[in-house]
Design a protein around this nucleic acid. Sequence first.
DNA 1: TGGTGTGAATCCTTTCACAGCC
DNA 2: GGCTGTGAAAGGATTCACACCA
Lengths: 221, 221
Amino acid sequence: MQDIPGPAVYRISFYLRQLETFQRAEHETISSKQLGKALGYTDAQVRKDLTYFGQFGHPGVGYRVDELIGRLKKILGTDRVWPVILVGAGNLGRALMSYKGFLRKGFQLSAVFDADAAKIGRRFGDLEIEPMENLPRIVGQLQIRMAIIAVTPEAAQGVLDFLIEAGIRGVLNFSPANLKSPSDIFVQSVDLAVQLEQLSFRMSLGDPSDALPQDESRSVR
Amino acid sequence: MQDIPGPAVYRISFYLRQLETFQRAEHETISSKQLGKALGYTDAQVRKDLTYFGQFGHPGVGYRVDELIGRLKKILGTDRVWPVILVGAGNLGRALMSYKGFLRKGFQLSAVFDADAAKIGRRFGDLEIEPMENLPRIVGQLQIRMAIIAVTPEAAQGVLDFLIEAGIRGVLNFSPANLKSPSDIFVQSVDLAVQLEQLSFRMSLGDPSDALPQDESRSVR
DNA sequence: TGGTGTGAATCCTTTCACAGCC
DNA sequence: GGCTGTGAAAGGATTCACACCA
């Protein structure tokens, strides 16, 4: 078990999400064809992806929804709760703090840090913003391994280094910077501008004139 | 010109970002090797990616930074400003509203909508939240083609359909839902939970016991 | 009949290696 | 010598097609 395509791991998350939808609709079993169709994949893709991790299906029947959900959570490591810290309590950080979907998915926001003295002690929900100095102690005491970075791109690399030093091993990074880290540290980055650029690229292919108000009348009422 | 690998288009965004960094550092030219190294790609990868779109380099010299930035922006369609609307003024939506990086990257937030009557008229920066009824008119008048969705997963599909009906052709979706749309509509999705799951997966591979506070003493001071 | 699991075939992406240019 | 652009080779991922099972 060690050459699973990256895209396959990524799709596992989507299978899980879709299975939970089927579960709420009280489906007992589901075929690779149904699951694939709901997500826009082929049935072969679904089966192949799943068999990278084991044999979960029942020939002639399909996959039992509850069972497969349990297996996928175990694979993704979300069958338990991961404590997570957030660094950076700016706009985005504060939005993340109040994001409710966290816990349901197996992640628990355990502490929030910011370098700005003016923000320290401010309270959001049941957490209050801590100064960076407290970070190593808290990470150590709560044995936290996962962090979310939502700071300026200039500060991001320094924060990452500091986090690693404190014992963090996986990071979800929201700042638009190319972060460097040792290979045993996992960094997953989300860059809003990159996402918008991808959209813009695809939209420009079809009709480059769509970008700015041109003529082309359409339902102005 | 029409079979460019998806991953290559994605990397173009990163080349652009890195080039802008080199530009700020006043580099005149840059080789595929330098650019690749800064981002963790091979030099061959960089050259191949770029040649999908044309010939931008100068043998023996490299790429002229200013020139290449201009070309890549044109390719991505961000050499002009795209007006964008936001639907959903919850926590995440409000964070996006105040995100300053937008305009610099070629995107301008032009209007914000929410279905919740209590939020209508509330003001953030220079925009105020509009009711959904106004959406088709505003999209039509300003000829807007791009939207960001930050609503609940339950509402997302309905909002998407409504947006398409109003003339939107590209959507950046932040709600955790598998949205269906015609093939000429571009939907780019970002799901926070999926990102965290990918991290959790990779971290679980190495050492499954890292998830919850176990023994393993580390720098608790 | 309806379904999984899987080797083989296909398709797509990345890397190699080198001709040609400054 | 240093660098790009690119066909050819290698490496990965997806799809096909079928054996096998309920």
